[in-house]
Structure formats: structure tokens, C-alpha cells
Amino acid sequence: ETQAGIKEEIRRQEFLLNSLHRDLQGGIKDLSKEERLWEVQRILTALKRKLR
């Protein structure tokens, strides 16, 4: 995994995270989306740690 590859994956995950946040802010309670949001946040945290 290169730095560029990790950064690209971070961009993808952040896009997905923002999309999930928008969907959930629409007021629709969706447990699967909430679980996915937490999963994406965990992935992002792990990726950012790899960059250090």
C-alpha cells in the first residue's frame, strides 16, 4: 500500500461518510446506514493511522 493509494482510499471513504451523514440528516432512521457510518469511520481512522 502506497501513500498515494492510502490517500485515495481516504478520499473515497470520506466521500461515503459525507453521503451517509447527508442521508441520515434527512431525518430517516436507518439502522443499517448508521452501522455503515460507524464502520466507515473506523476504516478512516485506521487509514489515517497508516499515514503517520
Rank of each mutant, 00 (worst) to 15 (best):
W38V: 12
T45M: 09
E39N: 04
A4L: 08
Q13V: 15
I6A: 01
E14S: 05
R49A: 14
V40F: 04
L24F: 04
I43Y: 10
K33D: 08
I6P: 00
L51P: 00
F15A: 15
F15K: 14
R36G: 03
E8Y: 06
D30G: 03
G26L: 12
G5L: 13
I43V: 09
L47Y: 00
S32G: 10
K48Y: 15
L44E: 00
E39K: 06
L16M: 03
L31I: 10
F15G: 08
N18V: 13
N18T: 08
E8L: 10
R12D: 02
G27F: 05
L20P: 01
G5R: 14
R52E: 15
R22Q: 11
R42D: 04
R22N: 10
S19I: 10
Q3P: 10
R49W: 05
R11G: 03
K48F: 07
L31R: 11
S19D: 06
I28M: 09
G5V: 10
L44M: 02
L47T: 01
G26K: 07
S19N: 07
E8S: 08
D30Y: 02
G27S: 07
L31T: 15
R52G: 12
G27H: 06
E9M: 09
Q3V: 15
H21M: 14
G27I: 05
A4F: 10
D30L: 02
K50T: 06
E39I: 04
I28D: 11
L16T: 02
T45K: 11
V40K: 01
H21K: 15
L44N: 00
R22F: 08
L47Q: 00
D23H: 05
K50R: 04
R22I: 08
I6F: 02
Q13Y: 15
Q41M: 10
V40E: 02
E35Y: 13
L44F: 02
S32C: 11
Q25S: 10
K33T: 12
R42P: 00
L31F: 11
E8H: 04
L47G: 00
R22T: 09
L20A: 01
L17S: 02
S32V: 13
I43L: 14
G5S: 12
K33R: 11
I28V: 13
R36W: 04
K48T: 03
K50P: 02
R52D: 15
G26Y: 09
F15M: 14
L44I: 12
T2I: 09
K48H: 09
T2D: 10
R12K: 11
F15E: 14
V40D: 00
G26M: 10
L44S: 00
Q3D: 06
W38P: 01
K50W: 04
L44W: 01
R36V: 07
L51V: 03
E34P: 02
L47C: 01
E14R: 04
K48P: 00
G27D: 10
V40A: 07
Q13E: 02
T45Y: 08
H21Y: 15
K33F: 09
G5K: 14
R12M: 07
L51D: 02
Q13M: 15
F15P: 01
L44K: 00
W38M: 14
A4H: 10
S32P: 06
G27M: 05
H21A: 11
R36S: 08
R36D: 06
A4N: 09
R11T: 06
E39G: 03
K48Q: 06
L31N: 09
L17H: 02
H21G: 05
L16W: 05
S19K: 11
L24E: 02
K33A: 07
G5Q: 15
L24I: 07
D30S: 03
L31P: 14
A4Y: 07
R49F: 07
N18C: 14
E9Q: 07
Q41P: 00
